[in-house]
Each structure stands twice: as structure tokens, then as C-alpha cells.
Simulated scan of single mutants.
Amino acid sequence: MNAFFTALSYLTRIPAPISTERDDWVKSPCHYPLVGLILGGVLLIFDLAVSSLFPSLVRGALLTVLWIYLTRGIHLDGLMDTADGFGSNGSLERTLEVMRDSRVGSMGVMAAFSVLLLKFSVLASLATDAIWIALVAAPVAGRLALILSIRLFPYAKKDEIGLGMKKNLTMRPLIYALIVGVGVLFLTTGWFGSLLLAGTLAVVWIMGEMSRGRLRGMTNDTYGATVEITEVVVLLLCLWYGGARL
């Protein structure tokens, strides 16, 4: 349970006991899809409370803001750093230096604006029955993409905890995470879950190969970017599947 609480406190603002033990941190990734399900559940409950009070545009904006708040924007920060680093067109050392810089550049601002605009517009356009599916599927798919990235691609830094997470994501915890993540996608969407899974795998592969080619592996920032892009892709697929409210 300590590993689960560590995952919950790291990925969200939802109150949970915080562990300082290294073992709890390195064992936490297998719980990421479950954390995504909890995050989706909170968003769903909030939407149920406000859906009858506000028009669709305000509803979409409120959901987007709450989504950022609940995750503390950590994945969005990774997306901005990744966009700045990849947009610098410099050497490996220069790219990592730009990504470590706490200041946000123009590429990072444009990336964040684009992702948030897409999330808002999709959430404002989805019909009620489709938005409830999207609010569960997108956070789960994003965290599923995160553990797949950790498992499938090398870690570029020599960070002890980051390397430990990859080392401890062995077959048994990976299978548990896949059962939760893939199971939720199929239970909430039926056969359409296969398309959502395909979209998730496509983002993981593209981001992983780009990171391997540019940085010789994934970093915490590219993990965050992968989560954000996966969520957008899944939301867009849900919009295509569920239809828009025009």
C-alpha cells in the first residue's frame, strides 16, 4: 500500500500518506494506471455536479482547469521542457541543459497552449454519455503510456530512483498494471478500447524513438510529454467515436 500511496501522492494532489522510502518510490509505477482511474473518477464526479449548472464551454473549461490542478501540472511541465529542448536543435548536452532550465521558452508555451486548447475544445464538444467515457479513459491511458515508456525504452539519466523504477517494473508488476489499464479501457468503451490502446501505443513508440534518437533515452520530462500527448489523442478518438455536440 505504501507504493500505491506514493504513486497517488506523486501524480496527483489527492491526499495520501507520503513515503520517503526509496523502495516505495521504485515500486510505485505499477500503480500508475490505478491512479489514472482514481483521477478520472474525481473528474467524473465533478462533471456530474456541474454539468447541469453551466453551458458546455464553461463545463469544458472547468474540467480542464481541475485536471491541471489535480495533477499539479507536472506532466504539462514535462511537455513544455521537452518542447523547448527538442526545439533548440542543439547537441545532446545543449538539449538537456535547455530542458533543465526552469524558464519556459516559446516552444514550451506553444506546446502547452496547443494541448490545453485541444483538451478544452474536446471536453466542451463531447456529448454527456461520451464525455464520461473520455474522462475515465484518457487519464488511465496516459498513465498506461507512462509505464510502457518506462518499461520499453532506456532511461537517459543516471538518477537512482528513475533507474530503480525501470529495474523494478518486472513482468509481474507490469502484468498487474496492464490488467488495470487495458481492462479499464475495454470495460468503459468495449471494442473501441482496442483503438484507444492502439493510439496509446503509437504515442509511446513515437515519443520513445524520438527521445532515444535525441537524448539516448527517456527522461522525466519526456515521460510527462508522453502522458499529455496520449491524453489528447485518446480524447480526440473519443470525440470521433462519440460525436460532437454542435
Rank of each mutant, 00 (worst) to 15 (best):
A137F: 10
A134C: 13
T64Q: 13
M110A: 10
I133R: 12
G41K: 14
A49Y: 13
M110P: 12
E97G: 13
L126W: 01
L96C: 02
D77T: 03
S114M: 11
Y155T: 11
A49T: 02
S125A: 14
A138C: 11
L57R: 12
S88W: 00
I74C: 06
R103T: 05
L53V: 08
S125P: 11
D159K: 12
L146M: 07
A145H: 00
L66D: 00
G85F: 00
R103G: 11
W132S: 01
G41D: 09
R151Y: 03
V122E: 03
L148W: 02
S51T: 05
G105Q: 05
L44M: 09
D129A: 14
S106W: 09
A156D: 09
K158A: 15
A83C: 13
G85N: 05
F113G: 12
R143N: 03
K158M: 08
L123S: 14
M110W: 03
D77E: 14
S88M: 05
A124N: 06
G90Y: 03
S121L: 14
I68L: 14
P154S: 07
L66R: 04
G78C: 05
L117F: 13
F153E: 00
A124K: 04
G87N: 13
G90D: 11
R100K: 15
L152P: 05
I150P: 00
G85E: 01
A134P: 03
T71W: 05
S125L: 09
H75Q: 05
V122G: 00
F46H: 01
R59I: 03
V136K: 06
G108K: 06
S51Y: 11
L96A: 02
I74L: 15
I150F: 10
S106K: 07
Y69W: 12
A127C: 12
A61H: 05
F153Q: 04
P154A: 01
G41H: 07
L148G: 10
G108T: 14
V109M: 11
I74M: 06
G90V: 07
G73W: 13
T71M: 03
M107P: 10
L126F: 02
T71V: 02
V50G: 11
W132A: 00
F86N: 05
G90S: 09
G105P: 09
S121R: 13
I147D: 08
T82M: 01
P154C: 08
S56W: 05
G60N: 09
I133Y: 00
R103Q: 10
V140M: 08
P139G: 11
A83W: 09
I133E: 14
D101Q: 07
I45P: 11
R143I: 02
V115H: 06
S51V: 10
R94A: 06
A49H: 11
S125T: 14
A61E: 06
S56F: 04
L144I: 07
L148P: 05
L63Y: 05
G90A: 12
M110S: 10
V65N: 03
S56M: 03
A111W: 10
M110K: 09
L135M: 13
I133H: 00
A127V: 08
L144A: 10
S149R: 06
P154G: 15
P154L: 09
R143Y: 07
G40E: 02
L79M: 04
S106I: 14
L66A: 02
G78K: 06
M80G: 15
L62D: 11
V122P: 10
L66Q: 06
S91D: 15
G78L: 01
K119H: 08
V115D: 04
A111K: 11
S56D: 15
S125K: 14
L152N: 07
I131E: 00
S121T: 08
G40W: 00
